[in-house]
Structures are given as C-alpha cells and as structure tokens.
Design a protein around this nucleic acid. Sequence first.
DNA 1: GCGAGGATTAACT
DNA 2: GTTAATCCTCGCT
Length: 191
Amino acid sequence: LKRLEREFFRRNTVEVAKDLIGCRLVRRSPEGEAYAVIIETEAYRGQDDPASHAHRGVTPRNRIMFGEAGYLYVYFSYGMHNCMNIVTEGEGMPGAVLLRAAVPVAGKEWFGGNRPKSPAKLWMNGPGKLTQAFAIGLSFNGLDLADPGQKECYIAAGSSLPFQATPRIGISKGTELLWRFVAEAPVLLPN
DNA sequence: GCGAGGATTAACT
DNA sequence: GTTAATCCTCGCT
C-alpha cells in the first residue's frame, strides 16, 4: 500500500476524479489498516462550477478547497451525513473530488461495526455511508492525506478500472457536466 | 439573530 | 415512489 503523493492531487480535478477510480482509500483501525477500492467519484472544479461549494467564493467552510491539494474537505449535509472530498488543483484554484462509493477489501469487521445492522453491500455505496463506514467526521476536515507521517487516512494506488461518466447526483445546477465517474464492470461486492 | 435549504439515507407504502 | 429525520452553513435582515 503505497501512499499517493501530493503531485497526484495537484492536477486538474476532473483528471484526478477519473484516476481515483480503482485506487484504495486506507484508514487506520484498531484491527490494522482497513481499506476499500474506490468505485465512484465526482469532480467539483473552479469557481465557475455552479454546483461547487466554492462557487460563491471563500467561506469558513469551503476555504480548504482553495488551498493546497491533498487535504481532506469534510462537510456536514442534510442534518445527518458527512461527505468527504479530496482537495485538488493548486492554491487559489478551488477544486475537490467527492468520494461517493467504494468496495471494502480489508478490515471488514471494523467497517461492519461502523455500519451496524447493514449488509456489506450497503456499507459504503453512498457518500454518507462511506464516511460512516470509515468513521470520518468533521474533525477530519483539513487532514493532509499526502503527509507521510499522517497514519489516520490516505489514498493508495490500485489497479485502474473501466468507468463511465455521468451527470453528478443531487445537484440542481451544472448537470450538463459529466463529472461523475462510476466503475461500470459490476465490481464484485461482498455479501 | 433568523430562516431556508442541502454534493443523503433509511424506512416506509 | 415517497417522506421523515436532523443540524450546519450561508446569506440576509
């Protein structure tokens, strides 16, 4: 499990979102390193993207999106869910990739404990569920995934998967952009 | 201060 | 297919 470096994230957001499909999201757990293969992402790029939190300029919440790449942007949504994004682009250019779904590989007991009473197929097949399974809360906002000394959470390279591009989910503006990327080959899900 | 709405989910019918 | 849950953030008064 080799941590992806900052240069991977310091690129065009849409490219990063595509390249993240098939990569692994790694999290320290009491049982060791738990990880899952990322199968769904969305790109939110620039101040011109009407669906992005960065669209109206810098606010206390979204300022991390305007900063250095490789940091986590976590926000609270719908009164009950957290969503996790990885900051992209260079400083001053806001961008982030929303992680929407993954397939658990290692640390399944821990994931299952974080998603009680939920079958494995539904552990992390949505952005809110993903953060729940990985125990990622608002306190992770601003975490540097590219810091080699930071062991809580990082992204590791994987094998590339075929994917397709679709409109992003749950937004009302910017639907003409095909900036959601989903692994198409039904990746084998655990039972 | 206050009110509206949200990059959603789960449990209904 | 429909809807309640639930609270942070932002923009406006």
